[in-house]
């Protein structure tokens, strides 16, 4: 899948391009609005990551022009401004998501993938699995290696989130947002504590540890 990056800061741009290529995307990069518009009209992209503040024509203007010309791939805005109004302005201009700088690359990747998945094909699975771990979403039963594991509600949500993102790193902010629906950072290590409890139940009595900590990034559930 081909993704377009429009970002004027050279370092951020190269870091985005590298990261996205590592994640398996083909990436084109433009440094300003005009070049971005040219590329977007030429090639069919699956998604675009566009900085709001660009030299010359800004990101909002660029997306406005794309939408006028019926170019409809999903757009993720990047911005240093984090107020609600800026977010709303971005979404009104035709963006599909909005991420503020500084951001964790894990989160950017998760959001881009979510944008790409946003097609109506997603069918709700009734169960999730990774390795010998099974989760039944209907009866809300969890087992590993045939052994039943009792989980509290939040532990269950966290494990469900891990399983849905198995093999992929998730940040603490992503966990807070998806498990508790909190979009700010409570300074105490509530996420660490919950992950720790989940590990007790899921990994402790097994040789193979599934939940790994990636320091500075977050956690990953490995099948």
């Amino acid at each position: 899948m081909r993704v377009l990056v429009v970002e004027d800061d050279r370092k951020i741009a190269s870091f985005l391009v590298k990261g996205l290529r590592q994640a398996g995307f083909a990436v084109d990069c433009a440094r300003d609005g005009e070049a971005g518009l040219g590329l977007a009209l030429e090639a069919p992209y699956a998604a675009a990551i566009i900085d709001v503040m660009l030299p010359g024509q800004d990101g909002l203007c660029l997306v406005g022009k794309l939408r006028e010309r019926k170019v409809s791939f999903p757009v993720l805005f990047l911005s240093a401004k984090r107020s609600v109004e800026d977010r709303v302005r971005g979404l009104r201009a035709g963006g599909d998501d909005y991420l503020t700088k500084p951001f964790a690359f894990t989160e950017l990747l998760a959001r881009v993938e979510a944008l790409l998945r946003r097609s109506p094909s997603a069918v709700q699975a009734s169960s999730l699995a990774a390795g010998d771990l099974r989760m039944d979403l209907v009866s809300r039963e969890v087992s590993r290696g045939g052994r039943r594991i009792e989980l509290h509600a939040r532990e269950f949500s966290l494990l469900e989130y891990f399983l849905r993102n198995r093999g992929r790193a998730v940040s603490k902010a992503m966990i807070l947002e998806n498990v508790w629906n909190y979009d700010f950072d409570p300074q105490t290590n509530v996420v660490d504590v919950l992950v720790c409890r989940l590990r007790e139940k899921v990994d402790r009595s097994f040789d193979k540890k599934m939940i790994e900590t990636i320091r500075g990034v977050g956690y990953v559930l490995k099948p």
Binding site: W180, Y182, P186, T188, N189, V190, V193, C196
Partner: peptide, 10 residues
Amino acid sequence: AELYRYAAEG
């Protein structure tokens, strides 16, 4: 309270 439950418990 639910958010801090486990942190407090720990």
